[in-house]
């Protein structure tokens, strides 16, 4: 469960997040909003890269506001970045293993098993020896997810994992994201532009509109909300066509 209380972020004269309070308790929560709405900034607040001028965040019962960014991994937080962070000169296996190195496994055998399981879960077992630089865009996004699943996470935050994916790849991605809570017991916080992906994955969705919470609730209700529809008419037309 993520509890955000009265968070405000200020960058000079800009307030990308303005006294935002919201509690997210579904196993998979979606976050949508136009470009520059403050989605990535909210994620940065959760992972500690951005210090809010006021407010507090609590994840899975631990109050994190004052915890240093590199210690938040110990509290079970994992995230991916909008631009993927796969090292080009390590193999896929080593990329994931690098995460396991810092996840406090009891033995190296256990760490190896976790790495193998995570890679297998995202369906990349046939690519373990491929160098990061030789992976396709979709494979890199999936590898990022595998990295986020290492070491019993309690919250996995994904920042636009579907960017640049084809429709079939996106379907596979949705299936993988839906299975994460069952795979490792973590809550998933999914940011994406692609409303279809959010619709396919999330029980609960929040809409951010330039720092304000526009709507929050069960995904189907939120997506049918008149105000939300007005703000995202273009994208929703597309959704109806698909439906």
């Amino acid at each position: 469960m993520i509890e955000i209380k009265d968070i405000t972020v200020q960058f000079g004269g800009v307030r990308p997040i303005d006294s935002l309070s919201v509690t997210l308790d579904a196993p998979i929560v979606g976050l949508i909003g136009p470009n520059g709405a403050g989605k990535t900034t909210l994620l940065n607040v959760l992972s500690g890269f951005v210090t809010p001028v006021q407010g507090s965040v609590t994840v899975a019962g631990s109050e994190l506001t004052k915890v240093a960014p590199h210690s938040r991994a110990k509290h079970g937080l994992r995230r991916t970045f909008q631009t993927d962070q796969i090292a080009d000169d390590l193999t896929l296996w080593q990329n994931v293993e690098a995460i396991a190195d810092h996840a406090h496994f009891e033995s190296s055998a256990q760490a190896e098993e976790a790495v193998a399981k995570a890679i297998d879960y995202v369906g990349l077992s046939h690519r373990i020896h491929r160098l990061g630089g030789a992976l396709s865009t979709a494979e890199r996004h999936l590898a990022e997810i595998a990295k986020a699943l290492i070491g019993d996470p309690s919250l996995v935050m994904l920042d636009e994992p579907g960017a640049g994916m084809s429709e079939s790849e996106s379907k596979l991605l949705a299936q993988i994201i839906r299975g994460i809570p069952a795979f490792c017991g973590a809550q998933v916080f999914l940011i994406d532009h692609d409303v279809a992906l959010i619709d396919a994955c999330c029980e609960q969705t929040m809409v951010l509109d330039f720092g304000r919470l526009l709507a929050k609730g069960p995904t189907s209700e939120v997506l049918n909300d008149a105000e939300v529809r007005k703000a995202y008419l273009g994208e929703f037309d597309e959704l109806e066509e698909v439906a």
Binding site: S47, F49, P69, H70, S71, R72, A73, K74, L77, R78, R79, F81, Q85, I86, A87, D89, L90, Q94, E97, A98, I99, D101, H102, A103, K147
Partner: peptide
């Protein structure tokens, strides 16, 4: 190709990403 080198690889890719997985 050991633990140290993998951590270096994470850091040279992006310090933020390294920090987010608990690398000092």
């Amino acid at each position: 190709v050991s633990r140290l080198g993998r951590a270096w690889a994470l850091i040279r890719k992006s310090e933020a990403a390294a920090i987010s997985v608990g690398v000092s």
